[in-house]
Design a protein around this nucleic acid. Structure first.
Lengths: 141, 141
DNA sequence: TATTGTTATACTCTATAACTATA
DNA sequence: TATAGTTATAGAGTATAACAATA
């Protein structure tokens, strides 16, 4: 009942991501937030110049899929939209949104610490640079 | 338009997995297979003793979610089910299923090579052991 | 013309609850 | 009682196509 696919880095990447994101989702559920929602709050932060389309490019989420994601956050009263011009609006955090962001930052820093603690010393420093070679320019293409 | 979240290993893990799985999905689409479907074919391989519930445990897929997944493979004529007892059936590859598996193995080995090639020499050997610390026992919990 | 934002739609993956039948 | 398999259902995430309005 073992798993021979564990020798494949791509398979291990998928399993590791699924397992850790499951844990993160559980941790964020106490704030009634999904992972994508929390990521949006963290990306907006103190900024007051971020458009939906900008954020989609940063997070690699398509325009059409930003709509229900931002709508959920707006319905919860966590974000607001400030007109920039007739076509675009800047995403900003509301006061409740900033309070929730502080909780999100607390949860995620705990989560990141737990993640790193699972990795033996000799491998730990290599993980982030290795992972960051797998996305960025040209990987989505 | 940069992404400060890239300093978080958890975020990088999710982005790396999404990016690479997007590439793998695209590569597998020429065989008209999803990633989960391909993983099932690879897991069955030459075995003739694997039950749906066993496979679900290995791949961390719930019983209920195995049903449509296996049904798609069965509808495509790639897997068959051999009664073990009145309650269980063994999953086996059909001859067409074995042919598709060979194509899957070709695609995935190319994919794994591409993945590793993206990582600088000094980090490469650390990736698999680090990732394998993040799933296994207790991570799903 | 290109970009922004939106609607509609569909597929995959995931999760839970409840049911049947067999070990 | 526990396990195997199924059905139904719901929520996310992701993908495409098409449209209106603005830069």
């Amino acid at each position: 009942m073992s798993d021979p696919l564990a020798l494949l880095p791509g398979y291990a990447l998928r399993r590791a991501s699924n397992a850790m994101m499951g844990r993160l989702a559980k941790a964020l559920s106490v704030a009634d937030l999904g992972i994508a929602e929390a990521t949006v709050l963290m990306s907006i932060g103190e900024r007051r110049d971020l458009k939906s389309s900008d954020l989609g490019r940063i997070l690699d989420i398509r325009r059409a899929n930003m709509v229900p994601l931002l709508k959920r956050l707006e319905d919860k009263g966590l974000i607001d939209r400030i007109p920039i011009d007739g076509k675009s609006r800047a995403l900003v955090l509301t006061p409740p949104g900033k309070a929730v962001l502080r909780e999100v930052l607390r949860i995620t820093s705990q989560f990141e610490a737990d993640l790193l603690a699972r990795i033996p010393d000799e491998h730990r420093a290599h993980l982030l640079p290795a992972l960051n070679c797998l996305w960025g320019e040209g990987t989505t293409e």
